[in-house]
Design a binder for these strands. Structure first.
Length: 175
DNA sequence: GCCAACGTTGGC
DNA sequence: GCCAACGTTGGC
């Protein structure tokens, strides 16, 4: 498979800077959001947002692993078209999700305490919107993406890790 | 709007 | 600790 020079250089550069400064490998993620609830366009308007409200332990664990600077693919579920709509970046590593403490909030969790928070959220910032959505059909048809969590039947996780090979392939598909 | 798939809850 | 019932997710 051939890759354009500029599609490869950006993640490599990120990786090298990251190694130089933090000695921790750069991680890549995919987050899902219903397109009509919170879209990549809204993230662009907001510049940055608190990724709160995740109430699934496996997804929570991924959120806690996120580090500032990590690349995040932004997926629109339940949308037309459904697929990866753009790129974001972790602008603040995960902290206790404040909505778990707010009894008036939909995501209130009575079992969470400030001493022992159950749920965490990072801040995500807008990077870019793709020229066209990488649709599910397209992702399914692309060699090397077979193991993407979002393509597995029945997978409902709203936050999933992306391998570096998958990231390269996805960035190569994206316009 | 349907419904399969999944996670969580709670009675036992 | 099992498992039925329930609520939610998300593609279609």
């Amino acid at each position: 498979m051939q890759f354009e020079r500029n599609s490869l250089s950006f993640p490599c550069l990120q990786f090298n800077i990251n190694v130089a400064l933090r000695i921790v490998p750069m991680l890549t993620w995919l987050v899902k959001s219903e397109g009509d609830v919170y879209s990549i366009d809204q993230l662009k308007v907001d510049c940055s947002t608190m990724w709160d409200g995740v109430r699934n332990y496996q997804a929570r664990n991924s959120l806690k692993e996120m580090k500032t600077g990590d690349t995040v693919f932004f997926y629109h579920s339940n949308s037309d078209p459904t697929g990866i709509a753009g790129l974001a970046e972790v602008s603040k590593a995960a902290y206790a999700d404040p909505t778990q403490f707010d009894s008036k909030h939909d995501h209130f969790d009575p079992k969470a305490t400030k001493e022992n928070p159950r749920w965490f959220c990072p801040d995500l910032k807008f990077v870019r919107k793709f020229g066209e959505v990488l649709t599910l059909d397209r992702l399914r048809a692309t060699k090397g993406l077979e193991k993407l969590a979002i393509l597995q039947k029945g997978t409902r996780l709203s936050v999933t890790p992306i391998t570096s090979q998958e990231e390269i392939i996805l960035l190569d598909l994206a316009k």
